[in-house]
């Protein structure tokens, strides 16, 4: 059909961009990579983020951290729940994007629904994990001694390539619930839904800089994620043995915590529960003097 044909509209292709500090910039490097359908058709060009994009993301995340950590767990829970609401509103788009890259429509729907579940689940935990994990400790001096969990800071999130949206949701939700700020390097092979997810975050009351989403190549960016002195933890799933080794060795530079979530936990319909939240917390113990 000719382009000029009156009854066939030329559709406008979507530009997928990075999400850094609550804005949608193109990569500073000007590079792109292609997202293709299962049958090999070009679906979209995406930004291929560079280490400088990561650097920018770390700067804005660091600025956002104190504010996010200081919010009440209850408020963080509300915002996580809002993310779920907004995902629900764009469920068709997300399912389309997941299935356009080689997932059956039924499976794609299941993936999106489970992703939404993750946010609802961790919205519930946000104001509860601290009670569950805090303790009053018996000590033999005149002190009231208690321990509380505190968020670690900036968490680099490396979700599995597949499932891309569910992988991101499963790692992101517990990090956020616990008051951490995040920079995610999303799936190379199915980046469309995670890139759209950034737009959902943008309209979900998530403060700028708390969630940053980069599209690009793991091979290129993993060394920078793991060596960056201002990234406090890495939460990953499905890394190869080589990637794991690299990440752990580099993380020794600033004693980054590296947490691997098993792939089973990602795709399970059951929610992974408390442990991913606690894996990104530091325990602070206070010795408060009291009378004898």
């Amino acid at each position: 059909m000719s382009r000029n044909s009156p009854d066939k509209r030329l559709s406008v292709a979507k530009t997928y961009k990075l999400y850094i500090g609550g804005k949608f910039p193109r990569t500073e490097s000007g590079r792109t990579f292609e997202a293709r359908s299962h049958s090999g058709d070009l679906l979209a060009n995406l930004c291929r983020a560079s280490r400088k994009d990561l650097r920018e993301a770390v700067v804005v995340a660091r600025k956002a951290f104190p504010g996010w950590a200081k919010r009440s767990g209850y408020n963080r829970g509300q915002i996580l729940y809002r993310i779920a609401e907004m995902m629900e509103g764009r469920i068709d788009q997300l399912v389309n994007e997941v299935s356009s890259q080689g997932v059956s429509p039924q499976k794609a729907l299941k993936e999106v629904e489970t992703s939404i579940e993750r946010f609802v689940h961790y919205a519930g935990w946000a104001d509860k994990y601290a009670q569950v994990h805090s303790s009053v400790n018996p000590v033999s001096s005149s002190h009231f001694n208690f321990s509380v969990p505190e968020p670690m800071g900036i968490v680099g999130i490396i979700p599995p390539n597949e499932p891309s949206l569910l992988g991101l949701a499963t790692l992101l939700a517990p990090a956020l619930a616990g008051g951490n700020v995040t920079i995610s390097l999303v799936s190379e092979t199915r980046p469309l839904a995670p890139a759209t997810f950034a737009e959902i975050l943008h309209s979900s009351d998530v403060p700028p800089g708390v969630v940053n989403i980069l599209t690009g190549f793991r091979k290129e960016l993993l060394p920078d994620f793991s060596t960056h002195m201002d990234v406090n933890a890495i939460l990953a799933a499905d890394l190869s043995t080589k990637e794991k080794k690299l990440t752990e060795e580099n993380s020794a530079l600033n004693l980054k915590r590296v947490v691997h979530l098993p792939s089973k936990a990602i795709s399970a319909t059951d929610n992974p529960g408390l442990s991913p939240i606690l894996s990104l917390q530091e325990t602070k113990t206070t010795w408060h003097p009291i009378g004898t």
């Binding site: 280490r51 770390v58 660091r62 060596t227 960056h228 002195m229 201002d230 530079l253």
Partner: peptide, 9 residues
């Protein structure tokens, strides 16, 4: 050092 820094140090 080739490594991005943190103001903590």
């Amino acid at each position: 050092s080739g490594v991005y820094q943190s103001s903590n140090y």
